[in-house]
């Protein structure tokens, strides 16, 4: 990376404020990984490639809901952003098929907890 100037910091801060839609975040702190987030992440990446879906998968830290790890937060166009908890390989695939592709939320796995 090039050396940052004070102006560059301001520029990144201002321009990057709106995050683009269509992303999936997987909690990959120790708590998440211990619960199997590695496998979920790998599954998501692989299946997205297979299905050729326009969505980015990102690794991130711990949201604080450690009891419900692995956590997967999903934000796609036209859908409310929700967090799925206790996700495994099968549910990860369901999230892609149902939530991302068919635009319908999955029953029984959403954790609507305070994270802001």
């Amino acid at each position: 990376m090039d050396k940052l100037t004070p102006e560059a910091i301001d520029r990144i801060f201002k321009q990057n404020r709106q995050q683009s839609a269509n992303w999936i975040k997987v909690g990959m702190s120790t708590c998440g990984i211990a619960a199997g987030a590695d496998e979920v992440y790998a599954t998501l990446v692989e299946e997205i490639k297979k299905r050729n879906i326009q969505v980015t998968v990102k690794k991130c830290g711990c949201l604080g809901m450690c009891h419900a790890e692995p956590l997967v937060e999903v934000c796609v166009d036209g859908m409310p952003t929700v967090i799925y908890g206790r996700v495994n390989k099968e549910i990860a695939v369901k999230i892609l098929d149902k939530h991302v592709n068919s635009k319908a939320l999955l029953n029984d796995y959403i954790f609507d907890l305070e994270t802001k």
């Binding site: 990376m1 940052l4 910091i9 301001d10 990144i12 801060f13 990057n16 404020r17 975040k25 909690g27 702190s29 990102k58 690794k59 991130c60 830290g61 711990c62 949201l63 604080g64 956590l71 937060e73 994270t115």
Partner: peptide, 20 residues
């Protein structure tokens, strides 16, 4: 930022007001 940004990306941290 925990759980919101990629911890391994400096740019994402700056985008949230980091190093400002």
């Amino acid at each position: 930022n925990c759980g919101k940004i990629d911890p391994e990306s400096l740019e994402e941290y700056i985008a949230t007001g980091g190093y400002v």
